[in-house]
Design a protein around this nucleic acid. Structure first.
Lengths: 188, 188
DNA sequence: GATCTTTTATGATCTGGATCACATGCTTTC
DNA sequence: GAAAGCATGTGATCCAGATCATAAAAGATC
């Protein structure tokens, strides 16, 4: 049921790539060559607006996939940048396309992956519609978004980092969260 | 390439349903039974928060699909409500699953559909990150979101309808948009 | 270990959008 | 055609979060 669909790919389809913090795996508008799985470390998918402001679309950690939709797109739609050193497995687009056409189990597994993504994005859009900063943060923490820095969380949920720190403190004052250390908070 | 993957389904998989404005096609948390295509009229997918506020996740018009991801989910994640009378074709989940396992062309077409959705949602999240109401509306108009009422647009892009009207007027004052009638605006 | 960068954190100020209030016109319905 | 309901506006007020400024601590770099 939840077995890894990528086990159906030929071994030549995958290539391990080591990465250092700040490394760019691909950039917006580049021709797509494949999708990726994080082995360890972390990668953020981001787009830079016309100003210098960056928007985090997704953050992939160990075991996570990213750029799945690139298989059906000519160019990447965002930048992929390493935020914690580690390694990723690159899966060649051509192999994915070929295997999809020859292997039903792979095809179904890959489709399921995309369906899950669709639901995650819908949930994210719903989260972004929460007007209050405190409630939005609480929802984000419940959804497991707060797995890195406060600053990173802030960019993901459309808040300034100042507002994010303040709201976190407010939640602690309310007794709804607990500060367990510098930059570390948990649900109470 | 862009041919309709659903042409591969058995004829018994589809059923036409007429709908009146306000009709509920399904509700959040109901067991999923299939996905839908709009023949004519329109349907909005929305979630109601704990308060009375509703959030529009998607709006499907003629030719549009909705609830695709339901094929991989046990329950619907939002309400589907008719906003303009018309008809929809309901496609049975069981038939989709069966056809996916027996027909590669269908499977690939369906997967591509989901991939497109993923990219659309990503673009939407990016749009929601635009801080200024005027710029956000402009981006939404460019993306073709403004196909119904101003009120509907407002809920889709996380603005109050008042702010939306005011920003539209501001854009007209700037000469970046033109008011062509009551509730009708176009890019200049 | 000195320097640089990033994250954490808080305070002060300002503003854009939410909210409240209200009027009008267009549809729909009975 | 009267009444109800909804979309379209606009004006007044208020406040939450953006922005600017500053500082300390941690981590990276040399």
């Amino acid at each position: 049921m939840l077995s890894d669909p990528f086990s159906h790919l030929p071994t030549t389809a995958c290539r391990t790539i080591d990465m250092q913090k700040g490394d760019v795996l691909f950039r917006q508008n580049q021709t797509t060559s494949g999708l990726y799985r994080v082995v360890f470390g972390s990668v953020t998918l981001q787009r830079s607006g016309l100003g210098g402001d960056t928007l985090t679309l997704h953050r992939a950690v160990s075991g996570g996939l990213f750029a799945e939709a690139s298989v059906f797109s000519a160019t990447y739609h965002c930048d992929a940048i390493c935020t914690e050193a580690g390694s990723v497995i690159k899966i060649e687009k051509a192999d994915v396309v070929a295997t999809m056409q020859s292997n039903l189990a792979f095809s179904e597994g890959f489709t399921r992956l995309l369906a899950v993504q669709v639901q995650q994005y819908r949930a994210h859009i719903e989260l972004l519609a929460i007007p209050s900063a405190k409630e939005r943060i609480l929802a984000a923490v419940h959804a497991g978004y707060f797995d890195a820095t406060v600053t990173e969380l802030a960019t993901r949920i459309n808040l300034s980092h100042e507002a994010c720190y303040r709201a976190l403190r407010g939640l602690c004052d309310d007794g709804r969260m607990i500060r367990v250390g510098r930059g570390k908070y948990t649900l109470s």
